[in-house]
Amino acid sequence: MAAPPDDDVLWARGLHYSYDGSPALQGITLGVRPEEIVSVSGPRGSGKSTLLGCLSGRLVPTEGEVWFDGVPLHSLGRASRERLRRDRFGWIGSAPELVPELTAWENAALPLLLTGARQRTARAAAYEWLDRLDIGDCARRRPADLLQSQRQRVAIARALAPGPTVLFADEPTAPLHQLDRMQALRTLTSAARSHGITVVLTSPEPAPAETDDSTGTSLVDRCVPLVDGRRTPTAPRPVTEAEGSAACSLSA
């Protein structure tokens, strides 16, 4: 078993995964450096979500290795994997997936409460993030009374409040309109940069969602195109030269 490179916080080699025999990942190798924001892109069914699941320890690859900070995720037991996920990882899904019975702040504070934090601490952290995401005034409302864009922000606050080392976002802007999409993605990436959080996100298409139109710079550091469960390093993209390089440029 080869040791992972020292400078990668998350490292995967030769990942294979199949759902009841249907192959989803077919040998993916990927390294993510600390505080890097990586976007995994590809069409529906290309294995993005499965890759994220394997990297975050939600799925166990049928073949291959996943290392996080020197810990082999692929060989951990279920309980320790759950604990690691709870303590070090954050997750944002393509749907908000909030607990309908809890208010917005309770939802945002839930991961902290689950780790055994005191109610006061969890509440303060939840309120802080809700305020930062401009939904502080919705804190006492339930998910059913919120707009979809507000719900997704609550989900983002929930993922960021415990201060994770790595944040996984599976098409975090899928349920939003174009304007909200841009804003949510910008909030997410700027929060991650200011707090030194590593982010692995997925998006259906590489260019439009990740380029900050106002500044022309890219929100993400690196693009990993995926097709049919394989990495395509030289993926042909139907975008212009300038847009393509902007989307995937290694801007610091």
Binding site: R58, E82, R83, R86, F89, G93, L98, L114
Partner: peptide
């Protein structure tokens, strides 16, 4: 679905 979400959040 809610239970699945909670488990995904790392609820034991």
């Amino acid at each position: 679905p809610v239970t699945a979400t909670l488990l995904r959040l790392g609820a034991p």
